[in-house]
C-alpha cells in the first residue's frame, strides 16, 4: 500500500468544487469511499444532482489531483445510492458557504413532493425563513425555486435589499 488513506483524504480535501470554489469536494460530501484495489486507487463519487454539469469536471479534477500527487493508477466509480444529501455538507462547509454569500441549507426542509406538504405550503404553513448571508436578517423572500444552479434557489433580502443564493436542502 503506497500511501495512507489519511493522506489520500487530505489530498481530496484540497480539491475545490468547480461551481463553488470555497467548498472542497470533501466539504460537499460527494466522495463516498476511497480504497486500494491492488495497485489501483478507487475513488467512489456520488453526483449531487443527476444533471449537474460539474460532475464531469469533479471527476476530472480528482483524477488530475491524484496523478499529480504521484498515484499512478486511479479509477473513479459512480455510486447513486444512497443519493447525495445536503446532510453530508460539513459544518465547516456551511460556514464557508455563508462567508461566500450563499445561505447554507436549512436542515429538515427538503421538499418531499408529498400532498400533505403541498397543502401545508398552500395554506402558508410549512414555510421557513432563510437568513440573509450578508446582513443576517431573516426578513427574506424566495424569488425562484431554482437559482444559478439546480442546487440553489434565488432569494432576496428585504432588509439590505441584496439578492442572494440559497443552497436548498436536498
Amino acid at each position: 500500500m503506497p500511501v495512507s488513506m489519511d493522506t489520500v483524504w487530505q489530498w481530496l480535501s484540497e480539491i475545490p468544487d468547480p461551481e463553488i470554489p470555497v467548498l472542497s469536494l470533501t466539504d460537499l460530501g460527494v466522495i463516498r469511499d476511497v480504497s486500494w484495489q491492488d495497485e489501483t486507487l478507487v475513488v467512489t463519487v456520488t453526483p449531487t444532482y443527476s444533471g449537474c454539469p460539474a460532475t464531469a469536471v469533479i471527476n476530472l479534477d480528482i483524477e488530475t489531483k491524484l496523478l499529480e500527487c504521484g498515484v499512478t493508477k486511479v479509477r473513479l466509480e459512480q455510486q447513486l445510492s444512497p443519493p447525495w444529501t445536503t446532510d453530508w455538507l460539513t459544518q465547516e462547509g456551511r460556514a464557508k458557504l455563508r462567508a461566500y454569500g450563499i445561505a447554507p441549507p436549512v436542515d429538515g426542509t427538503r421538499s418531499d413532493g408529498s400532498a400533505a406538504g403541498r397543502v401545508a405550503r398552500l395554506t402558508g404553513q410549512g414555510s421557513f425563513q432563510v437568513a440573509c448571508p450578508r446582513c443576517g436578517s431573516e426578513n427574506t423572500e424566495k424569488v425562484s425555486q431554482f437559482g444559478s444552479t439546480p442546487c440553489k434557489a434565488a432569494y432576496r433580502c428585504r432588509s439590505c435589499l441584496e439578492p442572494f443564493d440559497y443552497f436548498k436542502c436536498h
Binding site: Y49, S81, P83, W84, R110, S111
Partner: peptide, 8 residues
C-alpha cells in the same frame, strides 16, 4: 431515489 428528490 435520486430523481425523486429533484422532481419534488
Amino acid at each position: 431515489a435520486k430523481a425523486g428528490k429533484e422532481v419534488a
